[in-house]
Write a protein that binds this DNA or RNA. Sequence first.
DNA 1: ACCCAGGCATTGG
DNA 2: CCAATGCATGGG
Length: 272
Amino acid sequence: MLVPLPQPYDFALSTARFHVYGRDAANVWHEGGLHRVVDGREVRIEEAVGGVEVTPHDATIESVVLTLLGASFDLEGFAAWAAREDPVLARLVPALAGFRPPLQPDPFEALVTSITAQQVSLQSACAIRSRFVERLGVRGERAHAFPERDRVARASETELVALGFSTRKAEYVLGLARSDLDLDGLASLPDEEVQERIVALRGLGEWTADWFLARHLARPHAWPAGDLGLRKAVTAFYGDVADARAFSARFHPFENLSAHYLLTGLRVLPPV
DNA sequence: ACCCAGGCATTGG
DNA sequence: CCAATGCATGGG
């Protein structure tokens, strides 16, 4: 069934992050479509006129797919703002027309994914995370469900280390899974309180909290200032910047979309 | 055999 | 408050 998305929508560009860093057992690319377990069922998402074709389909799946594909982002407002306010994005936004940053629909998945990506290359992170997903996630036809929090809570440190986690990261993941933090409840809190609660957990720092706000909660003002990739993109497009966090003021009120467009812009459209 | 890659906690000044 | 250090894998 067709799930409509605001047009234009560039499916290939928007979903590239699910396969350019290596095999990802939770987001499997197969014959031009993305396979992922949603609400316990494996779903195939593929390009279609006016949106994406989703099979199987029901109301819950549609809602998760819309979240996954970032349907809520105000791209029109962003494009109009960029054309007026920022010469770099005025070039990037039309050149990347139809790019809609995908989101992480589940908070536990978002945080564990960030832990795996701390400090190491995205390729290393993807390889390790994929083994984790295959080991602890319920298998679908082609994709595995991302492991459930309570299943991870029952795993052992040794088990995670055997998958390639450092001892520290194994502790962080288990600590998160076993913590009493209400992850779904974070969605109802303002940015600063979400930050505080995430950073209070061992192994989850400012960078992880920023990406949680950006990629899970889709908060417009999220700006992962500490991110190495984003810092490289900012330098490439704007030159050296003294304070990466303060520089985000320039992108207000579209900090999150700006960060995503700068990162994707650096990947596919090097600066002039 | 190195070195770097989308951090973080710990330790010492 | 800031600097130095260890972490463990994948790719160059």
